[in-house]
Design a protein around this nucleic acid. Sequence first.
DNA 1: ATTAGGAGGTGGTCAGACCACTGCATTGAC
DNA 2: GTCAATGCAGTGGTCTGACCACCTCCTAAT
Lengths: 205, 205
Amino acid sequence: MSIEPVEKVYIEILKKIKAIISEDGLQAGDKLPSERELTDRLGASRSSVREALRALELLGLIGTRRGEGTFIREATGHRLVEVLASFILNDSKAQEDLAETRHIIIKDCAGLASSRITSSELEELELLAAEAVTVPEKAKEFEKKLIQSGKNHLLYRLYVELNGYDTAFAAAPALTKEDCLSIIEALRSKDSMTIADILKKQTMK
Amino acid sequence: MSIEPVEKVYIEILKKIKAIISEDGLQAGDKLPSERELTDRLGASRSSVREALRALELLGLIGTRRGEGTFIREATGHRLVEVLASFILNDSKAQEDLAETRHIIIKDCAGLASSRITSSELEELELLAAEAVTVPEKAKEFEKKLIQSGKNHLLYRLYVELNGYDTAFAAAPALTKEDCLSIIEALRSKDSMTIADILKKQTMK
DNA sequence: ATTAGGAGGTGGTCAGACCACTGCATTGAC
DNA sequence: GTCAATGCAGTGGTCTGACCACCTCCTAAT
């Protein structure tokens, strides 16, 4: 017989670490208890604690500084998709899926933004769009700000991760300056349909 | 001074494991070398090897069976979002984001499906929609099949992960039987616009 | 007051041990 | 010959204790 009753220690530790973060109200940038303290508090060996911490690190949820400690990270986690992708997405179809998904997320966020964007965000976007005309790199910032204006943090995370991946392996085509300007206009008129059209055209290209 | 020159051992191990998988042409379901063999081949301690393996396990890329070995998994990895979510999405806003993102992905996949679905897939969907009228659980299958018909594996993965998460914590509202039937009709006429409308209405509710 | 040095805390890595479990071959009874 | 019991080797799971490199901060010497 075999039932494998309890979960692996490092999984239990993950849960307990989560509880600690929650109970102590730790935020991004805050320091986690040291590995040795966690070892004591959680009643597990340091090895198991480290297995849990390393997993969280690879997920991009925490970061470590030798001699200082372990810290909760901002929701960047670009390593996540990078790792996933390098292990799973090997064929060209997967590359296409990646690009397609990225475009879809941009489009959706733009749609959300059309009804959620604030006037100050709109001003920022206008500024960035104007700059993008002369400085192509600004188009990327425009894109990011547009995503954020959608006010869906999960989609934002997904965008960041997908983005982090394909910039590492293949250049992600940013919006053109014409796109930026068109999107601004559409946002002004709260016309989510136009935005979809703009990005649809780009996806097709 | 401090330069932190080389990367952490477990990161190097990740790369080497990836190389091994690639060189040996290992596929999903295949067995990885044992922890002790990896320890020898990679010239690192078993602790470090395990840190790398545990991280890959949490990402859902590998699985282990005590007494047997470590195996490459199908690209399921529902644990990914589950972990991400449980660590990041703590407030109610995050829950809303989750539900919203799930709906958006369904909508997008339906849009993709409208131009990519095969006639046999359409038949399957029709059958499921008919069954959904009497058996509500079938609506979930309909939903899944619809996603798959979008032919974007990454989006499918995301859907599965999001789904796995919120079913674990809060019931995910499935499509109604009316939705299923309307979608079928829209797919028949390759009308992605109608599909968007149907799902938009549902999201709003 | 400034600075050099050391002590203590932290993450990074390693070696070795034991346990629980699986698979398979050997062994034994029938 | 067949088949079940058994025992061994291999595997993942966990723990302990030990170093190392690094950072911070406090202390003592200047």
